[in-house]
């Protein structure tokens, strides 16, 4: 299975980099990240030992960019009619799903690696809290993994990459901007309970906990669970298609 997974991962990764998609995503990501860090996040004026002004905007940037990474993973297979061919190959479905997901996640890792010089730069010239920055990168990696899994799932039932991108954008924006706060408010629960429930389902709250250097197991579990559930749903939707 590992060998088959590696084959799928290689194929998908190469298809990203052979075309312009990966290069456009990487360029837009670095420009957007640095613009928000320096011009919106008050990089020079706030206490930035943990690179807070860089990490703060990552959920919004990733909400826009990751659907662009995942949009064609399944949708294009459907569009080109290669999905049936792929599913009839002697490769377990789980390997295909995980392989595609890992390829998208790898691109996100490349995106984050492009920002690593900022970390190095900060270390050379300014006071930094490396442990805190490390936790920030961990948060970004977990967040991008969740968004990739969500994007893969959405791509699995869309027949056009453009539609897949739009749905992906709506869902990731909903997760990072809206945070279910309206849904929780509509339940009219007592305020303490409402607050607790909001924190449980609030992606930003978990993300900001980690980037501010206060991690608990439920923060990590949120992203891991979101990823696993999205991948399971992805598998279910392909199984439906297969049958």
């Amino acid at each position: 299975m590992t060998k088959q997974l590696a084959v799928i991962f290689k194929k998908e990764t190469l298809s990203f980099f052979e075309g312009v998609q990966a290069w456009v995503v990487l360029s837009v990501y670095i420009l957007a990240s640095m613009f928000t860090t320096f011009f919106v996040g008050g990089f020079f004026s706030i206490n930035n030992t943990g690179l807070f002004s860089f990490f703060y905007f990552q959920p919004y940037i990733m909400a826009f960019l990751i659907p662009a990474v995942t949009m064609r993973l399944w949708a294009e297979e459907r569009k080109n009619g290669t999905l049936e061919f792929l599913l009839t190959q002697p490769i377990p479905l789980s390997s295909i799903i995980i392989g595609k997901f890992l390829a998208a996640w790898f691109l996100c890792l490349c995106m984050l690696l492009l920002t690593a010089p900022l970390w190095i730069y900060m270390n050379v010239y300014f006071e930094t809290d490396n442990l805190n920055i490390f936790s920030g990168y961990l948060a970004c990696l977990l967040l991008s993994g969740s968004f990739c899994a969500v994007g893969c799932f959405i791509s699995s039932f869309c027949s056009s990459p453009a539609v897949s991108y739009l749905w992906g954008l709506i869902i990731t924006l909903f997760l990072s901007v809206h945070n279910f706060s309206g849904v929780v408010k509509a339940l009219h629960l007592p305020l303490t309970l409402e607050n607790k429930l909001s924190n449980i389902v609030n992606l930003n709250s978990h993300f900001y906990d980690i980037i501010s250097g206060q991690i608990s197991l439920d923060n990590i579990l949120f992203f891991v669970l979101l990823t696993l559930i999205s991948l399971s749903l992805n598998m279910a939707s392909i199984e439906f298609k297969k049958n």
Binding site: G50, D129, N132, F134, S135, G213, Q214, I215, S216
Partner: peptide
């Protein structure tokens, strides 16, 4: 409530 302080 069991937060780990991940700051130097």
């Amino acid at each position: 409530n069991k937060k780990m302080d991940v700051t130097s």
